[in-house]
Amino acid sequence: MKFRKASAAAAAAAALALTVTACGGDGSTDDSAGDGSGTGKITVGIKFDQPGIGLKEPDGSFSGMDVEVAKYVAGELGYDEKSITFKETKSADRETALQNGDVDFIIASYSINDERKQKVDFAGPYFLAHQDLLVRADDTSISEATDLNTKNLCSVTGSTSAQNVKNDFAKDAGLVNRGGYSECLGALQNKVVDALTTDDSILAGYAAQDQYKGKFKLAGLNLSNENYGIGVKKGSDLTAKINEALEKMVSDGSWQKVMDETFGPAGYEFEPAPKIGELK
């Protein structure tokens, strides 16, 4: 990742730091810096349980697409990696975390939609995913979403994926909500549910993990377009700054490098970088 050097004038650095502090209403950022010197702090909401997207490793480090994009964006805002605090932000807690100032921005497989835009602002999109199903590798009974009628479908509390399937494809599906995708995966493995639904990028990351290889498969259905955005507190001018960082990430080749390194090993064929401000 490339990080901006501390060459901006002091006044500009102070203004930027004040801007970020305004986003973090509880003082989650330290406005003493923000110029890449490492003395300022910024708090970023991510997922901790999504392989390939946002994962807290056993050694306490973090990996995944959202983590790398967050590092790049923070760098363009004037923060080096040591200045970033990653905070777990579950699906059901994302809007509240921004509204309360618990985090400065959220990058957590956060699909942009009209309901969420009433509560928070979004930069991006920076990635286009599609909703799909993950089923057991030996299950031949599910090849279409309509096959979920009379079956049990798992998704995470706060996510809209399962309800979308029930509303649009399988009204008789039984919905099972869990607190995290790992819990849904355990329920699928133990045959408590018949399928797990969320974005194909997330499902591919789980299926590629060593302990799950050969046990699950993607149904290969594009049930929806999921435009991933970076959430910020409503009214914050961070939105424009983050959009500039994302545009630079694409133009300098960093976006492609991150996606290749993240999804290449899983064999997941991701979409080209979306254009900032345009939803598909």
Rank of each mutant, 00 (worst) to 15 (best):
I230R: 07
A108E: 01
A10E: 09
S236Y: 07
V192W: 11
L185H: 05
K56R: 15
G214E: 09
G78C: 12
A97P: 03
E247V: 10
A123W: 01
G27M: 11
G174H: 10
G235Y: 09
Q50G: 00
V258E: 00
V69N: 01
Y268G: 02
V176W: 05
A170I: 08
M65V: 10
H130E: 02
R4E: 14
G54T: 00
D200F: 01
S141K: 12
T146R: 13
K191A: 12
D132Y: 00
Q163E: 14
E115W: 06
D260K: 05
D168E: 13
A9W: 09
N167E: 11
M65T: 11
T197P: 14
K234L: 08
T19E: 13
F105R: 10
L18N: 11
L77T: 09
V67S: 03
T197Q: 07
F263N: 04
E278Q: 15
K41D: 03
V20A: 10
K280D: 15
P125T: 05
K257A: 13
S224K: 07
T197V: 14
A173M: 10
F3G: 11
K217S: 06
V250F: 08
E247I: 12
I42G: 04
L223T: 08
F3W: 11
G101M: 05
E278R: 10
N243G: 07
